[in-house]
């Protein structure tokens, strides 16, 4: 599992790369803040229900929405630092040029998929607004959670496209 290890590196990005890097980092920070708030909310709910017989109304729904948002907003950063795992067993003896070409295709596919999801989520949002779907206890409209999803998938698409560009020019690795 290629996870959990992150140390700041001084990757040199071009102007577009710098913008995408800053944006995906901002999304990652927002995700971290949402998660921290979620953790504190759960704590308050536990204390409320065990000490005062007063749980936080709708804590279950809030956790669902907040963790979904945090997860979605983590996606672009993961791509920006090329954190998604691949099986490079079959190709690690290939010439770097060929591997770069395959990575280019893979990143283009991810880009396509991400934009597809951004578009479909936007359609879903419109329908949810029309139907008035909402959470059970707090009446939070469901479409609200789709806004960060659309933005995150769109940004994921952009970062994947940028990675493909890096593969094309050979600027990285």
């Amino acid at each position: 599992m290629a996870d959990a290890i992150y140390t700041e590196t001084d990757t040199q990005y071009g102007p577009i790369g710098r913008v995408l890097d800053a944006l995906s980092k901002a999304f990652a920070i927002a995700a971290g803040i949402v998660l921290t708030v979620l953790a504190i909310l759960s704590l308050v709910s536990i204390i409320g229900r065990s000490a005062f017989a007063m749980p936080v109304m709708g804590d279950y729904e809030l956790v669902q929405i907040m963790s979904a948002v945090a997860v979605a907003m983590s996606l672009p950063f993961c791509q920006m630092v090329r954190g998604h795992v691949i099986v490079d067993f079959f190709t690690h003896n290939c010439p770097p040029k060929i591997n770069r070409f395959m990575d280019l295709i893979a990143n283009l596919l991810l880009c396509l998929g991400a934009f597809l999801f951004a578009w479909r989520n936007a359609v879903g949002l419109m329908e949810l607004r029309k139907s008035g779907d909402a959470s059970m206890l707090l009446d939070i409209p469901t479409w609200v959670g789709y806004v960060p999803f659309i933005l995150s998938f769109a940004l994921l698409g952009c970062t994947a496209l940028y990675s493909a560009w890096e593969d094309f020019t050979g600027e990285r690795k």
């Binding site: 139907s131 008035g132 779907d133 909402a134 959470s135 059970m136 009446d139």
Partner: peptide, 11 residues
């Protein structure tokens, strides 16, 4: 489909 009407609250 079979669903509990209350799940899609407000619908």
């Amino acid at each position: 489909i079979l669903v509990l009407a209350g799940y899609a609250a407000n619908r």
